[in-house]
Amino acid sequence: MPAIVSVTSDQLNLWLLAFLWPFVRMLALISTAPLFSERAVPRSAKVGLAALLAIVVSPTLGAMPAVPLMSVGGLWIMVQQVLIGAAIGFSMRLVFAMVQAAGEYVGLQMGLSFASFFDPTSGGNTMVLARLLNVIAILLFLAVDGHLMLIMVLVQSFQVLPVSDAPLAAGGWFLLASAGGHVISDGLMLALPLIAILLTLNLAMGILNRVSPQFSIFAVGFPITLLAGMAMLQLLMQYLGPFLEPRFAATFTSILEFLGALRS
């Protein structure tokens, strides 16, 4: 006679919590992290990937807090997981925002500020050059297995900051906010060689226009600036990988530091 397997409601609740809370953190990261959050990726694929990761990772996380799901404490834990997952994805997106900022700086100096189109990722108009650099950064991210490292950091986040009903410390959010300051500085550092060359070229053409007033600066200046910018951009491409790889690694390390600072 076959044995009858009985499952109580408490066991079902524990199994549901063991899956749901990690799933919420993973889904929040996939919805905000670069590459995973692209609108070209179907929503069903995002939800399916988060569910698959939760099924694989949940058995290794140990016991979850004994808090009912349909309660104030359960809602608070779910909100925390959303904030943690979104913060991890936002931290990784800062690197790509830096590359996009560099494209904006260079495009403005090259006279390409009018060359923009609607970017579904950002939800607004983006310069073509900024979008190009962003696509190259995503390809480099894939080439160095950054997407796999991001998933690894997500799994490690449950050891650094386990699921609990304890409040999150304010020091961690301060670290995340301070990391946003590197977007402008690093983006300017990446674009600085091109900006310096283009400013020097504009200064030379301005002096030439003063020396020779019949020289049509508006007719000749734009093609020269555009060609010089394209030539310098081609030279910059070979240094883009060595510039971004250390920043990818530093971002993964800073994410773990940020999660550690969130522990109260």
Score class of each variant (00 low, 15 high):
Val5Thr: 15
Ser6His: 15
Val7Met: 14
Gln11Thr: 10
Asn13Ala: 12
Leu16Cys: 02
Leu17Tyr: 07
Leu17Pro: 04
Leu17Asp: 15
Ala18Pro: 00
Leu20Ile: 10
Met26Thr: 13
Met26Asp: 12
Leu27Met: 15
Ala28Pro: 09
Thr32Ile: 04
Ala33Lys: 02
Ala33His: 02
Leu35Asp: 09
Glu38Arg: 10
Arg39Lys: 10
Pro42Gly: 05
Arg43Ala: 15
Ser44Lys: 07
Ser44Met: 11
Ser44Val: 13
Ala45Val: 10
Ala45Gln: 07
Gly48Tyr: 03
Leu49Tyr: 00
Leu49Ala: 11
Leu49Asn: 00
Ala50Pro: 08
Ala51Ser: 11
Leu52Ala: 15
Leu52Val: 05
Leu53Val: 04
Ala54Pro: 04
Ala54Tyr: 01
Val56Phe: 11
Ser58Met: 05
Pro59Met: 07
Pro59Ala: 08
Thr60Ile: 05
Met64Glu: 14
Ala66Trp: 02
Ala66Ile: 01
Val67Leu: 08
Leu69Val: 13
Met70Gly: 06
Val72Lys: 04
Val82Asn: 13
Phe90Val: 03
Ser91Asp: 05
Ser91Cys: 04
Met92Cys: 14
Phe96Arg: 04
Phe96Ser: 03
Ala97Arg: 12
Met98Glu: 10
Met98Val: 01
Met98Leu: 10
Val106Glu: 08
Gly107Leu: 06
Gly107Thr: 06
Gln109Arg: 13
Met110Ser: 05
Phe114Gly: 06
Ala115Thr: 03
Phe117Pro: 00
Phe117Ser: 13
Phe118Asn: 13
Asp119Lys: 06
Thr121Asp: 15
Gly123Lys: 03
Asn125Ser: 14
Thr126Cys: 09
Leu129Ser: 06
Leu129Arg: 03
Arg131His: 13
Asn134Glu: 08
Asn134Met: 05
Ile136Gln: 11
Ile136Leu: 14
Ile136Cys: 05
Ala137Pro: 07
Ala137His: 08
Ile138Arg: 05
Ala143Lys: 12
Ala143Phe: 08
Asp145Cys: 01
Gly146Phe: 03
His147Thr: 08
Leu148Met: 11
Leu148Thr: 05
Leu150Ala: 02
Ile151His: 00
Met152Leu: 11
Val155Ile: 12
Val155His: 01
Gln156Pro: 00
Ser157Thr: 00
Ser157Gln: 01
Val160Gln: 03
Leu161Gly: 01
Ser164His: 07
Pro167Cys: 02
Ala170Cys: 00
Gly172His: 09
Trp173Ile: 12
Ala177Arg: 06
Ser178Ala: 11
Ser178Lys: 12
Ala179Asn: 09
Gly181Pro: 06
Gly181Ser: 11
Val183Ala: 08
Asp186Ala: 09
Gly187His: 11
Leu188Tyr: 14
Leu188Asn: 04
Met189Tyr: 10
Leu190Pro: 00
Ala191Ser: 14
Ala191Phe: 10
Leu192Trp: 14
Leu192Pro: 03
Pro193Asp: 09
Ile197Pro: 05
Thr200Asn: 14
Asn202Asp: 13
Leu203Met: 10
Leu203His: 04
Met205Ile: 11
Leu208Thr: 12
Leu208Val: 09
Val211Trp: 13
Phe215Gln: 02
Ile217Leu: 11
Val220Glu: 04
Gly221Val: 15
Ile224Phe: 15
Thr225Arg: 07
Ala228Met: 08
Ala228His: 02
Ala231Gln: 08
Leu235Tyr: 11
Met237Thr: 07
Met237Phe: 12
Met237Gly: 03
Ala249Trp: 06
Ala249Pro: 00
Thr251Gln: 07
Phe252His: 08
Phe258Pro: 01
Gly260Met: 02
